[in-house]
Design a protein around this nucleic acid. Structure first.
Length: 113
DNA sequence: AATTTGACGACCG
DNA sequence: TCGGTCGCCAAAT
C-alpha cells in the first residue's frame, strides 16, 4: 500500500532542472569547435539560466564524448580539480593562452550561434 | 523550512 | 594584476 506515493513514478526523480538543462548544455558544448572555448556564463546566458546552474551540470558531466575542457571561466581560468587535465587538453588544441596558464578569451572565445 | 553551497561573474580597491 | 565581496539561482543539508 504505502498510501499513494510510489504508484507509478519512481520515488526519486532527480530528473528536473539539472537533467533537462544538461541536455541543452551538452548540446552547446558539443558544438564548440576544436581550438575554441566558451565561458560558463556564455552558456548560461544562451540558455537563460544562472551560470552556477551550468557549472553544476558540467560538474556532473554524465556525457563521455563531451569536450568539457572547452568550457572555462569568463576570465580564462580552468575549473579546480580538473585544472591540470583541462589545461593540457587546451594546449593540445592550440588554444590561445596567456602567460599564467589562462585562456586568452579575446581570441579563443567562440561565438555561440 | 531556513541556511549553506557551488567546475561562476561583475565590481571594487 | 590580484584578492576580497556581493549577486545569482537551484539543489543539498
Amino acid at each position: 500500500m504505502r498510501t499513494r506515493r510510489s504508484t507509478g513514478a519512481p520515488a526519486t526523480p532527480p530528473a528536473r532542472g539539472i537533467d533537462a538543462l544538461a541536455v541543452r548544455v551538452f548540446g552547446l558544448v558539443e558544438a564548440i569547435p576544436r581550438g575554441r572555448v566558451l565561458a560558463y556564463g556564455d552558456l548560461a546566458k544562451a540558455l537563460g539560466v544562472g551560470p552556477r546552474q551550468v557549472a553544476k551540470v558540467m560538474s556532473t558531466r554524465a556525457d563521455d564524448g563531451l569536450p568539457w575542457w572547452r568550457v572555462v571561466r569568463s576570465d580564462g581560468g580552468c575549473a579546480p580539480g580538473v585544472k591540470a587535465e583541462q589545461e593540457r587538453r587546451l594546449r593540445a588544441e592550440a588554444v590561445a593562452m596567456r602567460p599564467g596558464g589562462r585562456v586568452d578569451m579575446a581570441k579563443a572565445r567562440w561565438a555561440v550561434e
